[in-house]
Design a protein around this nucleic acid. Sequence first.
DNA 1: AAGAATGTCAACCGCGTAAGA
DNA 2: CTCTTACGCGGTTGACATTCT
Length: 245
Amino acid sequence: MGRTPCCDRAAVKRGPWSPEEDEALRSYVQRHGSGGNWIAMPKKAGLKRCGKSCRLRWLNYLRPDIRHGGFTAEEDAVILSLYTQLGSKWSLIASQMEGRTDNDVKNHWNTKLKKRLLAAAATSSPPPHARLPAPAPASRTAHVSASSLFPSLAIPTVKTEAYTYDDFLAPALGDPFAAADGSTSAASAASSASNWSTADNGASEVSLFLLDFCAGPDLGAVAAADQLKLPGGYYYPLDSSLSPV
DNA sequence: AAGAATGTCAACCGCGTAAGA
DNA sequence: CTCTTACGCGGTTGACATTCT
C-alpha cells in the first residue's frame, strides 16, 4: 500500500540542481509564474524534475527576494522569540523575517541556535529559567503568550508583515523593562496592538544571557564601542541595563 | 598528510489539508 | 457530501565542506 507518489520517480531527475536547470526554472517562473500548477510546470519548462522539487528549488533558492548568507544577532533573537511562542512553526517564523525561508530558519535553528543555547545554558551559570525554550504546543492559532522562560525579553507578537530591526526596539513610550505587574500573558494580550508584549520586572540575568547568546562572545566589545545605540532612540532591548538615549 | 569526526545546508519524504470536481 | 488532486509544511537524510586528531 502506501501513498501514491506525486510523480514517477524513475522518470525524474533527483539530487542537486545544475546551473542550467536553475536557469530554465528561473526564466520560466519569471515569465509565466508557476501557472498555478507545480506538477505540470516542469514539463512546460523543459525540466525533468518533480514538481515538488521545482517548487522547493524556487522557494528556497531561486526566488529573487531570498537573502543568502549568515544570520544576524537580530535575526537570531527573532527566531528565538518566535520559537518560544510558536514552536517549530518554521514557515510562520520565516514569514516574519524578510528574505528567509522556512528551510533556512529550520537549518539555522537545528545546526546553530539550539546548540548554542544548550551550551550557554550548560555553562556560565545561567539564570534559573534560562533553559532551552520548550517549543510552544502545536496550535492552529498563534496565540500570544510571552514566554515565561524569558520574561525579560520584549517579544513582538506575530504580525503579518516581516519584522524589521525596529520591532525589537523599545516601544516609543516608556521603557520595556519598566513594567512590573508580573502579569506576562495579560500584558501580552494588552500590548498586541502595538506588536509588543511587555517585559516584566527585569530579570536582567536572563537579558544578559540572551544578549550573550544572540551576539556571541564579542558582545562586550560591541556594547563598549556603543555600536548598539540605535536610530530609534533605544538600545536593543535584551539588556535591561541599557537605557533609552 | 591522511583519515575521522563534525558541521552545514540543499533536497527529499510523507503527512495534513484546502480546493475543486 | 465524498473523492481526488495538488500544495504546503515539518522532519529527516545525505552529500559536501571544514575541523580535528
